[in-house]
Computed example of a mutant assay.
Amino acid sequence: MADLFRLVSLTRSELLQANPWARPHEPSLAPAQTAPRPGLFEGGTAFRAARREATLQRQQRGIAPWNAWAAEMAGLRGKAAADPALLRLWHLLAGVELIDETFDNEFDVAGFSFPGTTRFAGSAFGGDTWFTDARFAGPVDFRDATFGRDAFFERARFAAGADFGAVNFQRGAEFRELACAGTLGFVEAEFAGSAWFRGSCFEGPVRFRGARFGWEAGLGDCRYRGPADFAEVDFGDNAGFEGSVFEQSATFAQARFCRAAWFSGAQFRGEAVFDRARFLGRRHFDGIGVAAPRFPLATQAAVLERLRAAFPG
């Protein structure tokens, strides 16, 4: 027991050493030791303001100092796990919370590693935004954010899911070769420019329900390992799903395809739902693969075979 107490004390000291900005707020962090779970206690207004300032200063110093801090925090997480109260403190210090912020200029965190929960909810990015090759170890929240210029998330890695619900992309959105474990949500997101997800791998559920694509949507050559929900999505321009593999259900109910819809070579290994989907342009379903029927008549195979026969291209 004494060894455990020494480990907890040492780890707490190491956490504060990695985050010296938090030392003046140490007395106010006491409630974090008794909160039922991370996030119920946020450290108070002064603490959050200090964490915000420390985060922005670290970001401005560049990738090397940031990733050195992230690596140190990742190492300390294993030590903090020995004590629930200490783990709650770790979450407070490792979290990046920049909600309702306004970034007028280019925002560049390409290649940055985020060790804890990351929140940019409600923030406005006025210049080009770079999250290329970023690594997110914890949950990510971009809900209601606005990207005024191009947003780059190529090869980003989300280990615990990401929520882009109701995000407004006013220019191009680049998510090529994305990898996401957990749920990836773009529910009711707005894409005014082109949006590219080609070559991505989604390990968990993908939710685009109610999203609107004003220009080209490149969602082909992707692997959807979890359920994929594109119900009620409005594709204002060409929509590409060619060569994609849907390992579980794929829902396009009430989706609207205003121009060409490309599903050539797509593989549907679970239920495929196209009920009341509208195709206003050319449809390309050549070479698709469907799962063997499991239910009489109302099967994914029957649905797709009817599409293939009705819309040969």
Rank of each mutant, 00 (worst) to 15 (best):
A81N: 00
D100M: 02
L93K: 06
R119N: 08
E97F: 04
L98F: 07
D104W: 12
A110Y: 13
D108V: 09
R88V: 09
D100S: 03
V96W: 02
L76A: 09
A80W: 05
L93Y: 08
E97N: 11
F114R: 10
L76V: 03
N105W: 06
P84M: 02
F120H: 01
K79C: 08
R77K: 09
R119I: 01
F107V: 06
D104A: 15
E106K: 14
E101R: 00
D83P: 14
L98H: 01
T117F: 15
L98Y: 00
V109T: 12
A94Q: 10
G75Y: 07
R119D: 06
R77G: 02
A81F: 00
F120I: 03
A94E: 13
H91R: 03
K79E: 06
D104C: 12
A74N: 06
R88W: 12
A81I: 06
E106A: 11
V96I: 08
F103R: 05
R77L: 01
A82C: 12
T117W: 10
E101Y: 05
F120N: 00
R119E: 00
P115V: 14
D100C: 00
R77H: 05
A81M: 10
R77V: 05
T117P: 07
D100T: 04
L98I: 01
P84R: 04
D108P: 06
T102L: 13
L76C: 01
F120Q: 02
G111K: 12
V109H: 06
E101T: 01
L93P: 06
G116S: 10
A74W: 09
T102K: 13
R119S: 02
D100N: 13
D104P: 10
L89P: 08
L87P: 03
G95L: 00
A94W: 07
E97A: 09
G75R: 15
R119G: 01
H91Y: 14
K79G: 05
L87H: 11
A110E: 13
F107C: 03
D83K: 04
D108I: 10
L93C: 01
D100K: 02
F120G: 00
E97R: 11
W90H: 01
A80E: 04
V109G: 06
N105L: 13
L92F: 13
F103N: 04
G75C: 00
V109N: 05
L76Y: 03
K79H: 15
K79D: 06
P84I: 07
L98E: 00
T102Y: 14
A81K: 04
E97G: 04
E97D: 12
G95I: 02
A110M: 03
G116T: 08
F112M: 14
D104T: 15
P115M: 13
G116P: 03
A80I: 05
L93H: 06
L86F: 07
R77W: 07
E101L: 07
R77C: 08
T118M: 09
H91S: 14
E101D: 04
D108C: 13
P115W: 11
E106P: 06
W90K: 11
L93R: 08
F103G: 02
E97S: 11
L87F: 08
I99C: 08
R77D: 04
